[in-house]
Amino acid sequence: MLVRETTTRDALAVEGLGLTIGTREGALPLLADVTVRVGRGETVGLVGESGSGKTLTARTALGMLPRGARATGRVTAAGLDVLAAGRTDLRDLRRTRVSMVFQDPRAAINPLRRVGDHLTEGLRAAGTPRREAARRAVDLLDQVGIDDPAGAMRRHPHQFSGGMLQRIMIAGALATEPELLLADEPTTALDVTTQAEVVGVLRALQRSHGTGLLFVTHDLDLAAAVCDRIYVMYAGRIVEEADSASFAVAPAHPYTRALLDASPSVHGDQGPLRAIGGRPRSLAEAPSGCSFRDRCPRADHDCALGVPATRPHGTSHVACLRPEQVKP
């Protein structure tokens, strides 16, 4: 019974997550009713503009809440109830079962330590003997396309380019064979050709290890190219969940449609860009009812009455009163 449960459970289940932070003026809401699921071996995109709460959501999966924040709802990562877990359980979770890759690899690696020490740290903490850990690390470096992997183990981070260092971070993140990998804008700082290579490495490793991947990005094209399913966030809420095949061709939420209309594209015909008025909002600044209504071309009086419930529409789930009016 227990065995069956562990093989079918999700790598990550965020259910009805709310986050508020206390300030002198009172409670400031950051996230509201966020539900995100990542199955084992699945790649799930979390897209949105600045202030949408995508990074906060990803960090919550590791129990990394902003100082003074209060969380409600439920977050289960690799089987652990994160919001209820103590420090020891969380440390164990971060060391071995859930890993994270950040935008800037140089800010996330100790510049004074050798690459090899960084890569074997998690394995050693999990009790792998030194020699075996080193052998696994060299093997991983080879898999992410680092030349002379054994030599690379003895070098320091500054001896690698940004793209190479991000490959090393991915190798390190997957060294302990985690159930879940959180990647927060992992290729945003890289050149386009390097981005393509790093994404290729990330996908190949994730597939072969069966890791669930939560891919946080502002880049809609990248999310559509990489992910199986995509969540769109706006002002601290999920406004749409879609499979990536239908995401770009049949958006269900006016915000998703507006984002696609505002994005210039390289492939296909070039239509005119349609800018959305105003700027992205955080949850604290958002209007009552639907957060997007002050920028939405289809909003009317009804949209102010309450936050629209999430409901199925086509192959998507959407928090909008009238998704049928969104043109494909």
Partner: peptide
């Protein structure tokens, strides 16, 4: 050509890109 092919799109052929590079 490599720059253009590196822009993400559905059905992105990452292995061919790596070869081209």
């Amino acid at each position: 050509r490599l720059l253009i092919d590196s822009v993400p799109r559905p059905g992105w052929d990452l292995e061919r890109l790596a070869r081209d590079r």
